[in-house]
């Protein structure tokens, strides 16, 4: 059976009731794993509290951080600080230099763009860079629910173009809710249906809400485990030091 993942829940993590409501709702809607956006400066205690809430409900938690750097230099410095602490790193690319730097850095998992159509920098060059480091394009359904009129039309047109470019360069697409309240959560099938608005085919739709986000989590958990040494090198057994011959 396919396991669905929503990588972008954005409750106020200090509001425990809201977090609990959203996690419960996600579980009820059929999600197997959720990614909760955690502020960079969050304390260990707060993260442990989130883990406990998710464990009680029986849902898997992926810790996620959203970076919003103004310059490429700031992005690099943020990445250095947060990469070892969070399972998923997403960068909100509000300028072209930041978008380019994020697309070529292998520490970035998700590229997220603002809803303003003038600030969506996912073009051919960006896709080529992203495909080289296996970064994914993240599309949130929240603006599709909230925007009206011309701004929604512009966004849909941008998303259609981006989906085509992503397909051409084999950049995985991750569809998530980006929900701040439980009223913006939808079932995985409804989220998949929303992607028909920008012409994603059925297999790509299903991958965008299950395999693609799952692959990011599995890859990063492997890298963050203490047995990880380097790409394709892993400690499989620990023992006593070898005696000299």
């Amino acid at each position: 059976m396919r396991k669905f993942v929503d990588l972008n829940l954005r409750p106020l993590i200090r509001d425990i009731d809201q977090v609990e409501t959203m996690v419960n709702k996600s579980s009820e809607l059929g999600y197997h794993c959720v990614g909760i956006s955690i502020p960079q400066g969050a304390k260990r205690k707060e993260i442990r509290m989130l883990e406990k809430i998710c464990n009680d409900v029986g849902i898997d938690l992926a810790t996620r951080v959203d970076l919003f750097p103004k310059t490429p230099r700031e992005l690099l410095s943020n990445l250095r600080r947060v990469r070892r602490r969070f399972e998923v790193v997403s960068v909100i690319c509000a300028s072209k230099p930041v978008a380019r730097q994020a697309a070529k850095d292998r520490r970035v998992d998700l590229l997220l763009f603002p809803t303003d159509s003038r600030k969506r920098f996912f073009d051919l060059a960006e896709a080529k860079l992203a495909s080289g480091v296996s970064a994914s394009l993240e599309i949130t359904t929240e603006p599709l629910l909230l925007l009206r009129g011309i701004s929604k039309i512009r966004l849909l047109s941008c998303l259609r173009r981006e989906a085509k470019i992503a397909k051409k360069f084999n950049v995985p697409i991750v569809v998530s809710s980006g929900a701040t309240t439980e009223y913006l959560l939808r079932t995985p099938q409804d989220n998949a249906a929303l992607t028909t608005l920008f012409d994603l085919t059925l297999p790509r739709r299903l991958c965008a809400i299950s395999e693609n986000p799952k692959a990011i989590i599995v890859r990063n958990r492997g890298k963050l485990s203490k047995d990880y040494v380097a790409p394709n090198v892993r400690v499989i057994r620990r023992g006593k030091p070898c005696s000299s011959v």
């Binding site: 809607l29 359904t141 599709l144 629910l145 909230l146 439980e182 009223y183 913006l184 959560l185 939808r186 079932t187 409804d190 989220n191 249906a193 929303l194 028909t196 608005l197």
Partner: peptide, 17 residues
């Protein structure tokens, strides 16, 4: 897709699953 985009009915917050 159309039902998923419903967020309000008569200014009342609504979600339809």
């Amino acid at each position: 897709a159309s039902i998923a985009t419903i967020t309000k009915i008569n200014e009342k917050t609504v979600t339809i699953h």
